[in-house]
Design a protein around this nucleic acid. Structure first.
Lengths: 111, 111
DNA sequence: TTGCAAAGCATGGAAGTTCTAGGTATACTC
DNA sequence: GAGTATACCTAGAACTTCCATGCTTTGCAA
C-alpha cells in the first residue's frame, strides 16, 4: 500500500473540498477563490480544476446540480457529500503526517 | 508560473535530499531509511527512488561516486551539492506555504 | 446595434510522474 | 551449491496536471 501518490493528488482535491465544505460553489468561482487565497504561490487554470471536479463527482465526493443565477446565467453548483467530508478529514490527516515527516527530516539535516 | 507541480515532485525529492544533507548515502540505504522513518504511511520501492536519484544528479543537486564497501560490494554513493542544499531549503519553504494554505482552508471549513 | 470583454463550462493532447515488474550481479550463510 | 540479502538499473503502463483552445451567453460601451 502506498499513500504517497494519493496524497499528492489529494493536495489539489483537498483544496477544492475545503472550499466546498464551507459553501456550495461552482467551478469558476472555486478557481478564483483558491487563487486568491493561495497568496500567489500558484495559479490554477480552468483546465486544471474542471477535470478534478468531474473526478470528485465520479467518486461521489461531491454532487453537481445546474442552477440559474440571478444574473440569468447557468452555473453548475457543486455540493460536498458525507463521503466528501470524510475524504477531506482523512486527507488532511494524511497530509499532516507527511508534513510532519518532512519537517522532522529536513529539520534534522540542519543540526 | 505554477509551483504546485514542482512542489509535488519536491515532496519526494525533498525527502531524499534531507537524508543526504545529513550524510552521504547510497540508493539502497536511502530507501530503507526513509521507509523506516515514514512510520508506515508509505513504502517506497526501488524503482521509485533510483530514477529520482538520477534526476537529482542530472540537475546537479547531488554528485555520485562509486565506492567499495568493507564488505567488498560496490556502492554508488551520493553527495549533496551546494545547489542541492539550496533546493532543499527553498523546497521546504514552498512546502510550508502550501501546508499553511491547506490547514488554513481545511481548518476554516470546520468552524 | 455592433463589438468586445467577462462569465462559465468543457476537452484533447503534451509532458511529466510514480509504480510495477522485471533483469543483472555479488556476497554471505547454511 | 542453494538460498537470501545486498545493490543497482530500466522499460513500459498508468495516472496526473497543465496548456491551449473552443464554445456559449450575458453585460456593457461606443
Amino acid at each position: 500500500m502506498n499513500l504517497s501518490k494519493e496524497l499528492i493528488g489529494a493536495s489539489t482535491q483537498l483544496l477544492v473540498l475545503s472550499v466546498l465544505a464551507r459553501d456550495a460553489s461552482y467551478g469558476y468561482e472555486i478557481i478564483r477563490r483558491i487563487n486568491a487565497e493561495s497568496g500567489g504561490i500558484f495559479t490554477w487554470q480552468e483546465g486544471t480544476v474542471y477535470p478534478i471536479l468531474h473526478k470528485l463527482e465520479l467518486d461521489e465526493k461531491v454532487r453537481a446540480q445546474w442552477q440559474e443565477a440571478d444574473t440569468g446565467r447557468r452555473r453548475k453548483y457543486y455540493y460536498i457529500t458525507a463521503k466528501g467530508r470524510k475524504a477531506l478529514e482523512a486527507g488532511t490527516k494524511e497530509w499532516s503526517s507527511l508534513h510532519g515527516l518532512l519537517t522532522r527530516m529536513a529539520g534534522a539535516s540542519y543540526e
